[in-house]
Design a protein around this nucleic acid. Sequence first.
DNA 1: CTGTTAGCGCGTTCAT
DNA 2: ATGAACGCGCTAACAG
Lengths: 339, 339
Amino acid sequence: MRSKQPTIKEIAKRLNISVSTVSRALHDHSSIGLRTKTQVKQLAKELNYEPNQTAIFFQQRKTFTIGVILPHLAESFFSEAISGIEDVTYKNKYTVLLGQSHDDVEKEKQLVEKMKIHRVDGMLISISKNTATYEHFEMLKKANIPVVFFDRIPKVQDIHYVACNMISGTMQAVKFLLEKGHRVIGLLNGPENLFACKERQEGYVQALIKNRIKFDPSLVVNTDLSPEGNIKATKELLAHKRKVTAIVVFNDYVAMDAMHYAHQQKIKINKDVCFVSYANLPFTHYLKYCPMASVEQYPYKQGQKATEMLLELLDKNEEEAAPTNYKIILDSQLVVYNG
Amino acid sequence: MRSKQPTIKEIAKRLNISVSTVSRALHDHSSIGLRTKTQVKQLAKELNYEPNQTAIFFQQRKTFTIGVILPHLAESFFSEAISGIEDVTYKNKYTVLLGQSHDDVEKEKQLVEKMKIHRVDGMLISISKNTATYEHFEMLKKANIPVVFFDRIPKVQDIHYVACNMISGTMQAVKFLLEKGHRVIGLLNGPENLFACKERQEGYVQALIKNRIKFDPSLVVNTDLSPEGNIKATKELLAHKRKVTAIVVFNDYVAMDAMHYAHQQKIKINKDVCFVSYANLPFTHYLKYCPMASVEQYPYKQGQKATEMLLELLDKNEEEAAPTNYKIILDSQLVVYNG
DNA sequence: CTGTTAGCGCGTTCAT
DNA sequence: ATGAACGCGCTAACAG
């Protein structure tokens, strides 16, 4: 379909020189006469010549494309993260192949397969909330395609990843509530197989211990992140025999459901029960019910760092480097809303 | 870096047959003996053979990749649209190369260039709000790369596009308000140079005419979409000498500012003054102030349709078809919230 | 039914 | 300073 595009062969023919001369001239090779060099370049411009990247990709066994798989862009965390990814890739002559898993493991597998077939040079992945087996990632390893996981990372050892340490932010959140006088603080956590949930709980427990408050496991409930699950979990916490006066919630989406439900139960939001959440939404101040504070997870930065790491790996890879595992862990941080 | 991967040549050598036989066997070519066919396939599986797509792309002058350029994924309209795009592309063995212009014309141009170089088979574009010149798109035409614009389309004739007709939805919105008894209805519109704004006004006027109400131009005000502009416009409408009892607002973001300001002025939202908006936000029901109704613009569907159109063009292109221009115009539709 | 061969466009030795 | 020739992996036209 685009057969009319000029090639170096065409240029060579017109100038009565060889293709290799043209190739070298175009690349400013030192051993080409200035005269032929300018000659070639001018004709190239005239003909609107553009190197055929697909040929180069093929020849160099490299596509300068990185595959990105994440749950869904509708979540603003991920749409911000991908901006970070894009910005770094495009600065480095790479390009982004996109795929949303929509939190479906099967879809995730298909995407991995598709991108592998498409010969991406490397991948950035944030796993679906249901991903519990990792063969499809192992496969990539075997195929020698570097992967950097970000934010939602699998629970295995030998991987590269960038994540946000939820412990610090959670500890700050609990401390914030303790200082406000709360003693019975619930943790409305997400799916247990997510690493970040483990960390939330760890931060929660550590903050309690640090303040000499006994950890009560029954104050921790999990949701599968579905609206029904969110409400069920909230219900459970609010019905706890000890009167829960504050809840640390997995994220803003869950928090909205939780606060909505609480309101329906005639509970005064952030008075009878205080809510603290983890930042996902950009519009919290326009919401009917807004958490008192929020743990920031720096999506843009995570995207950036993960991409930088991947590009570094791609460089290294060419030199057949040792298989060290890289990790970058950012500290999450509590932001208190004054609205 | 991935040189260990087996090729058909390798398979051929091991089986002492020719590469073309292997190729054909793998493709279930009719003229290959069942015996060799199974033989080849088995060895392929054993060796974990996978065709090198880059070679195929190169050879077939096709990348099965489509470039998508849109302003920003953070706007939920676009993140939904891209889901529609993805779903169709992935069903058709294509893949999505992503780029956000962030409403920056320069960035948009760079992306077009980059994707062209990457030899995408076609492109889906929603232009930045500042795009006023179209040379970078002309270039694509010359390079014979089909483009389908969606939602935000350039003001030129010879393009393919999918868009949503704002007239129908706006008429429904005004009709809805008229039926509620409103007679003085304001239109808080966006920048006049946007096509979609023209359509909003047209729908507004048509609905009034249809109901034999005189169109009063002073009831139409425009905002530049900045928070200050939004408030200024709202102020102007609320101060109108005729008492405005309902306002049709450009979009949810503007509506939030408008309702917020109105509330500050002791105006009871959707009682003293009713608001109707155009859907951008997925969470309207979680908002502090929610418009009574909203004009739906079907982002997912637009994405789908645009992609289908592009894929069709790609098919056609191979047969060197006539350069007709395709358009699909969906009707926007009013959705009344019952919350 | 199967093998041989010729590209696809480019970079890259190896000659000259 | 330049050219000839090869190969990347695959498909397809042509020959048996």
